[in-house]
């Protein structure tokens, strides 16, 4: 069980949106984590410094927050299953040109038909996958 946190989740979502707006306003870039990450993998894109700095900031956030607060964390998926899960995510975001941040937040905010299609697709397959794992196969 996890607690339903509407206000806190809305506030966190607003911060994610603020980051997306600032990245566009200052750097002219879409805040899509798949694209930003893919651009630093060798052979890295020539504009890798801003990408690496953004990612470093994202990793640093919970480290700095830990001075005052640590978020709940638990991963129900057995560790060995994170390997096929991660592989599928990596392959999927590459061919699908984006993920929850790039399509789900930035693209949908631009009312992009590609992003709306991508979001409906990955939300549907994620929902079916969780249903099958938990209620058909009785897994994690």
């Amino acid at each position: 069980m996890t607690e339903f946190t509407p206000l806190q989740s809305f506030a966190g979502g607003a911060l994610i949106g603020l980051a997306a707006v600032l990245l566009m306003a200052l750097h002219g870039r879409i805040a899509g984590l798949s694209g930003i990450l893919t651009g630093i993998l060798p052979p890295a894109a020539s504009d890798w410094p801003w990408r690496a700095s953004f990612l470093a900031g994202a990793v640093a956030a919970p480290i700095l927050l830990a001075l005052v607060w640590t978020p709940d964390f638990s991963s129900p998926t057995p560790r060995v299953w994170l390997i096929p899960g991660g592989l599928l995510v990596g392959i999927g975001i590459f061919f699908g040109s984006g993920c929850t941040s790039g399509h789900g937040v930035c693209g949908n905010a631009r009312l992009s038909v590609r992003s709306i299609t991508a979001t409906l697709t990955f939300m549907a397959t994620a929902g079916i996958t969780v249903y099958l794992i938990r209620h058909v196969f009785g897994g994690f």
């Binding site: 592989l87 999927g92 061919f95 699908g96 040109s97 979001t119 996958t129």
Partner: peptide, 9 residues
């Protein structure tokens, strides 16, 4: 690609 991403997610 999006379908595969959703399965992994």
């Amino acid at each position: 690609g999006s379908a595969i991403f959703g399965i992994g997610w």
